[in-house]
Design a protein around this nucleic acid. Structure first.
Lengths: 156, 156
DNA sequence: AGTGAAATTACATTTGT
DNA sequence: ACAAATGTAATTTCACT
């Protein structure tokens, strides 16, 4: 499922880190930082984009301002009768699901969801139950978030 | 700590969603989608940016290509002698920490970390132990990730 | 706040090494 | 694969509504 994407060299990692910090930086600025001409930087970004190493250009939004004030994590003990693929398809299609990881340990999946309020969390769990995905589950509400970065820098 | 950011109106949410999908869209394209002129869209984006509703323009990178092949979640039972603020500062300063949430339930914090390999995970846990942050902990390794979105759309 | 036009800047392409 | 130069398209600013 996950495509194998060629590992980046040091310059690519630097460019990616600079773009992660501020994707509106000009090619000239980036070029100066990594010691390349703007057109060379442009070509590298084009390739990083085409290969999938850079998935997309996006914005980091404040979800509270969007009306999604609650972040919750749901540890899922999957009812395998319902079907693992069906569960993954459900998660991928559900707009409230920010993340869905298959994890080691006593639980099958870890979901991260964003909802307007606690009522939304309850309704979301109701959906999971209605589809018989849950053998058991445990929900953790994020009281506050100290760190939330889309991008984690690679060691150089 | 968390600043209160004015809630967005419908047009702002639409613009933000469009930018989250592709931040390189032209102001003309966005304007057409929401029924505004390019300069009006520009002004709204400028305000969203200034208010913090849009935190930053960034790229969604493939962390495996960056050399960070392992994602792990660490449930932390905090040793409160070590200091909660010190722990949060540690998490914020640590490059491998992608997320740090204060959560409800039997655990104090949930960390999401990205590392090169399982050895990196072990070393990271070693750092937490060395600083005496852990009363107890439980680590879940992400075997695979079905969904991972930085942006979750608001209901319209 | 939004519009539309003018000014500015950056991007994308081509060519050459 | 990179650099330089040129054409094109974007953004930004401003006067006005």
């Amino acid at each position: 499922m996950a495509a194998y994407i060629a590992a980046m060299d040091t310059v690519d990692k630097k460019i990616t880190a600079l773009l992660a910090e501020d994707a509106r930086r000009s090619l000239a600025d980036i070029g100066e930082a990594v010691g390349l001409s703007p057109s060379a930087v442009n070509e590298r970004i084009r390739r990083l984009n085409a290969s999938g190493a850079i998935k997309r250009f996006t914005v980091d939004a404040d979800h509270a301002a969007l009306g999604l004030g609650v972040t919750a994590f749901v540890l899922v003990g999957l009812d395998y009768d319902a079907g693992e693929e069906a569960f993954k398809a459900f998660a991928a299609a559900h707009p409230s699901v920010a993340e869905c990881h298959h994890v080691t340990g006593g639980w099958s999946y870890l979901l991260k969801v964003r909802l307007a309020d606690l009522g939304g969390v309850e309704r979301f769990l109701g959906e999971l139950k209605a589809q018989h995905f849950l053998a058991r589950s445990e929900t953790m509400i994020a009281l506050s978030t100290a760190v939330e970065r889309c991008f984690t820098p690679a060691e150089v």
